[in-house]
Amino acid sequence: MVEALEAKKLKEHAKLKEYLALTDEVIVKKNGRDWSRDAFDLTTRVLHVNPEFYTVWNYRRHILVHGIFPTRSVLCTPPEINEILTTDLSLTTAHLKQHPKVYWIWNHRRWCLENVPVGPTEDDPDGWRRANWNKELFVVERMLDADARNFHAWNYRRYVLASTPVQRAEQAELTYTTRKIEANFSNFSAWHQRSKVLTSLWDSGKLDIKKSKEDEYELVKNAMYTDPGDQSVWIYHRWLVEPGNDYEILRREITSIQELLDEQPDSKWCMESLVFYHRLQLRNHSSRLTDTDKQGIVQRCLQLLNDLQAVDSPRRQRYIDLSTEVQKLA
């Protein structure tokens, strides 16, 4: 036991020593502006051990830009540049599998993609770019399969969708978020993405806003009934209702949440949302309400806020502050 531990320690010590020697070597080369192929290979080895070493990623790109790419010999023609960058993309794919949250790796990927040369031929100047970019959505989907909330991957996904040479129909992204949400209603990253995609589809007129919103209400209702405690769903519902200008929809949603609350009398999110939508009612539609209506709604809100203080005591002070706000609407 003791011997095994001792051996492990020695091995770790040797590994650390080896890494420090590598680090020294790469820094000496960098300071000497060594832009050779040897230096490039050395950065590969260092980054393999420590992909967080941002200076070495920078150095690697300097070697490519100043040392390797400008050599317009047989060795570094555009096909060769394309090949080097394609290899670097595969290298970072391997890194990402082990370190899915290291900013520098995601960055290096972007840089590679943005530097793919024009070609292979004059007739097909986008061929290489297309080939490299087309793999990206596949890579990022594998990353999101492994961790559906990885915000690096989601940000990268939006970047790829916006920058890829062959634009994909936005509807495909809507379908993707449906798939992610149906796999797990709690995935707020997917709900968030959905809100962005829908806004764009509605603004461009590619989707009929009225009909599409109804589909969304249906989807959310389903999710609410599945787990009324899941805040992702309620936050998204709020986005759907806001700014609350459609009085009939506002009333319908209030009724439907009230029904759910009747079934689940302790549901904090039902109460919280009811207060919010009632306040929208008072703020945006006061001309439709009689004084008695308004008094009734205010009393109802105060009652709900009072109940919330009990069922959700950590946020008690917030409900007290909101009660003061609600009274101003009377």
Binding site: F151, F188, S189, Q193
Partner: peptide, 10 residues
Amino acid sequence: FGACIGAESH
């Protein structure tokens, strides 16, 4: 707010 335009709040 998120890390860039379009990013999820964090």
